[in-house]
Design a protein around this nucleic acid. Structure first.
Length: 278
DNA sequence: CCTTGAACCTGCGGGC
DNA sequence: TGCCCGCAGGTTCAAG
């Protein structure tokens, strides 16, 4: 469940139960994720107080009171769920945190593409997870000028470029498709041809789509997105993603027979309307 | 440097 | 009902 809006939603959901709390107990039930948990993770966290929770790129960050930071990535299928008291762990519950108030926070990840790591707060800019990243999609440093500069001369498709975290951070498959649709830009267009006027139009569309998705609590595919267990509902606003064969809103309104297409780019599905996107 | 494709995992839904 | 196939929100690494 993790593009920028979903990770942001998770951070906000954890805020209420974790900020200012201590980890009374940390149970690492399985550590062989694709990137294994660091040795001594439970020991390093137990007794620590969580000073701050925030998103960096698609990572959930928890500043601890000893200068370290717990870094969590949800991979493709990761979830964080909150329970007011102890519950028996389920199949893919890999880490269970218990706070000093008795709240349980469970990290669940069936596909095990997620990860946890510890780092020094002061060394994050140079950290291997972050040093190569471009500007965050919602930051002011992501703007028409910076995007144009990154796209200039690029031969890959704009869709693949938008998912490249060196160009812009936070956009994944769903929001790349949705943003391009809303901006009327074909996902097949060479990235270089988007520099300039099209980038000018595209940047605010990306920001708006992401902001709306955050407001909706993210998109829920089959999982609960919010730690509270509530479902995000931005999937109801998808115009093209997952809608192969349907007419997009504009074509439907005009009674045109065009249908949303699915193609594969960079090994990922792209959904778009060939009539509305050029 | 850029670009492409495969790899890492499990689960679910569709087609037969 | 059961099996097989394709597909799923991300990132990294190797090879051309």
């Amino acid at each position: 469940m993790p593009e920028l809006p979903e990770v942001e939603t998770v951070c906000r959901g954890l805020q209420g139960v974790l900020k200012g709390r201590r980890f009374a107990h940390v149970d690492v039930r399985r550590k062989d994720l694709r990137i294994p948990f660091p040795k001594g993770l439970a020991g390093a966290l137990t007794g620590r107080q969580v000073a701050r929770i925030y998103r960096r790129a698609k990572y959930v960050m928890m500043d601890l009171d000893d200068g370290q930071v717990l870094i969590v990535h949800l991979g493709m299928s990761g979830r964080m769920t909150i329970s007011p008291q102890a519950v028996s762990p389920g199949k893919h519950d890999h880490v269970v945190f218990t706070t000093d108030e008795g709240t349980q926070i469970t990290f669940n990840d069936p596909r095990r593409f997620g990860l946890m790591a510890l780092a020094q707060q002061s060394e994050l800019d140079a950290h291997k997870f972050f040093r190569h990243l471009g500007p965050d999609a919602l930051s002011e440093s992501f703007n028409a000028e910076s995007l144009s500069a990154s796209l200039k001369g690029r031969k890959t498709s704009i869709k693949v470029a938008l998912m490249d975290q060196r160009i812009v951070v936070g956009v994944g498959n769903i929001y790349a498709c949705e943003s391009l649709y809303r901006a009327g830009i074909s996902p097949k267009r060479k990235a270089g041809t988007v520099a300039g006027g099209r980038a000018q139009a595209l940047v605010p569309v990306i920001k708006e789509v992401l902001r709306q998705a955050i407001k909706a609590g993210g998109s829920s595919l089959r999982d609960h997105v919010q730690p509270s267990g509530e479902l995000g509902y931005f999937q109801d606003s998808w115009q093209v993603y997952g809608r192969e064969g349907e007419s997009c809103g504009t074509c439907k309104k005009k009674g045109l027979g065009h249908a949303v297409k699915r193609i594969v780019q960079g090994g990922r599905s792209t959904f778009y309307c060939a009539r509305c996107q050029a």
